[in-house]
Amino acid sequence: MATAGPPVVSLREVAKRYATGTLAVQGVDLAIREGDFLALLGPSGCGKSTLLRLIAGLAEPSAGLVSRPDGDGIGFVFQEPTLMPWATAEANVALPLELKGNPRREARARAREWLGRVGLAGFERAYPRALSGGMKMRVSIARALVTQPRLLLLDEPFAALDEITRFRLNNDLLELWQRERFTVVFVTHSVFESVYLAHRIVVMAARPGRIAEEIAVTSPYPRDEAFRTSADYAAHCREVSQALTRAMAA
């Protein structure tokens, strides 16, 4: 898959120090190109979420520069589904469009269309309470994509799900990505998940949070269950695992 496009996001010498004095990340240089599927991999507390929030513009860097798509070019998926419990699946997905001032009818129609694309046709009128963990996450993904953003940011989105559901959502996310051609930054602490999904893996180290290594996963897309059991996959997992061990020792 060609990923030689212009950078969608670039970070230069970025640092973030919280008001508490914690230096969450430091000296981060990163360019994310159009159409890339990038995984941020690292142990908990190494600044992955902070980095993602800096990219989204939800936090301001203490030093350095972040450039990102403007307008509504960004979709964000949190670790929890983060749905409004008082609104139906359809209304939850329509929120970003309605906030932009799109007419309600049109927003709801687009929301229904996206619910269909994430495999939730028939659940438009369901309240989040009546949906399983995996289904809620699908609603959350539909909401992030309904504005057709150039950049999709996901913060350990499937960490709380069981393995079967996680594998299925991995496949569906890959399929959406190949069809819709957005750029993805996917935060995870799972070596296996990062290798399965990503084209490029950025391994992070902690205290202070920084980029330790970058690894390209050259295996071609589409990737499916056959890839999960291939020698190629196993070899990449080993390589990334070793990089992570080095990063944690450093």
Binding site: G57, D72, F76, F78, T82, M84, L99
Partner: peptide
């Protein structure tokens, strides 16, 4: 808090945050 962040991401106005998030 994540929903509040989402509102910020989509540049919701104060009024929208109140009406669509805080009041419910």
């Amino acid at each position: 808090h994540n929903l509040l962040d989402l509102m910020r991401l989509y540049r919701a106005s104060r009024w929208q945050v109140l009406w669509r998030l805080r009041l419910p």
